[in-house]
Nucleic acid binder design. Structure first.
Lengths: 232, 232
DNA sequence: ATAAAAATTTAGACTAATCTAAAAAAATAT
DNA sequence: ATATTTTTTTAGATTAGTCTAAATTTTTAT
């Protein structure tokens, strides 16, 4: 018989840090979406799938730890410490997404829930080795930028296809919605990161766009789709 | 600005399943070490790094869920359902260890704590793709067998170097202790999985062994080391 | 066989994250 | 400007996993 294969330092997973990381990540992303303005309790409740009351409790705790700037009824922003944690989680999330797609062959519509779990694995060494193994990618499979190991998020300028000038070829660089349904729809249209698009015409009736894909085939995309296609 | 990059189904990590999985895994490994006999509350408390009282509580819960066979004061064994979960966790643990060593270049002494976290990632699809990506390995970097996707653990017969016959060349197939200190010691001796060993002599004084490594160099290993080297 | 020791369980308490319901504050609309 | 609505916070409760201390059961030693 052989010895036990493990020497646990702690059995119980640290739910606290998991939960904290989630709140901080969500605050970061909602702040970004909000052009840097405070995030509201209700928005957080929606994104965390909890109730506003639970969010209020948690905000007090995070503020006690100096991870957020919080004044009652005034919404929150991240402190430098809080942002550091948020960026580390986002870096891990996006690197794992690259792994799942580039190494394991997952589709971009299948990786979100798994990356949600992997993003909390706690090992800087692992994260940096993974980064190297993947060739230090700058963008994840949805086109989102990957913060570097110093916790710096590359700033990227986005334009939406729905606002692109007519008859100008642009490259598809990202999506602003990550739902499997949207991503699968793009798969069907053969629209993927890096493809080129040229808007020929916008319908007055439903705002749908007639576009040329890869300087080759012509197709129609709805305004809903065009609004969430990021191009440059 | 772009939309939030996630659509959480649940924010809070399921601590219950994490904890449950840990207990089941530990019960499996301790039962194996015990030749299939019941595992005691105290042994579980030691391995889980908790107190006996906490273990008692948890055993009642696991028994309520029909994951273990438990009669008060009599120790526990896994039910079929419990064993299924345990083997799935062990499979994931060992596959991730292979990934960490073979793909990311970690040493076998560095991977335990990371695999402890990765083993709880919940996605059968991920596990099976990882298995394929790694070439469906049968053993982890410590020589421990990897259960297959049907939850079957290959049965492996172990012998300890300390009990090997004299002057017979044997192959090193595993270790029965996984502490970094032990593994690093083996690294220094250049003893690794697959190497060959021939015991020339056992000292009457301290039971240390004079062995030939790889049919080449001669070295001494202590009884403590030889006891934890598995060979065939 | 029984007394002492060891192992295990129970009782009661604590913490973190959540909830519902109620109260309070801020925003909105007339 | 004030009444109404919406948002946010507080109060009090719940659950899971843990703890210490006390009680109980089993094992060991004479």
């Amino acid at each position: 018989m052989y010895e036990i294969t493990f020497n646990l330092k702690k059995l119980s997973f640290d739910l606290t840090s998991f939960t904290e990381e989630n709140y901080l990540k969500i605050i970061y992303l909602l702040t970004e979406r909000n052009n840097g303005n405070e995030v509201s309790t209700n928005d957080l409740a929606e994104q965390t799938q909890t109730k506003a009351a639970s969010v209020s409790d948690m905000l007090r705790k995070l503020a006690d730890k100096s991870l957020i700037n919080y004044k009652k009824y005034q919404g929150v922003t991240l402190t430098t410490d809080g942002e550091k944690i948020a960026l580390s989680v986002i870096r891990k999330h996006r690197l794992w997404e690259v792994f799942l797609v580039n190494k394991l062959g997952f589709g971009w519509d299948e990786i979100h829930d798994i990356a949600e779990q992997l993003e909390h694995i706690d090992s800087e060494d692992l994260t940096n080795r993974l980064d190297t193994f993947l060739g230090s990618p700058k963008f994840d499979p949805h086109g989102d930028p990957i913060p570097n190991s110093q916790g710096q998020m590359p700033s990227v300028v986005y334009h939406r296809l729905s606002e692109a000038p007519l008859n100008k070829e642009v490259a598809m660089t990202g999506v602003s919605v990550h739902s499997p349904a949207f991503l699968q729809h793009l798969d069907k249209l053969q629209i993927k990161l890096g493809c080129t698009l040229k808007v020929l015409e916008i319908s007055e009736f439903d705002k749908s766009l007639n576009v040329i894909l890869n300087n080759d085939s012509s197709l129609f995309v709805s305004y809903e789709v065009a609004k969430n296609l990021l191009v440059k």
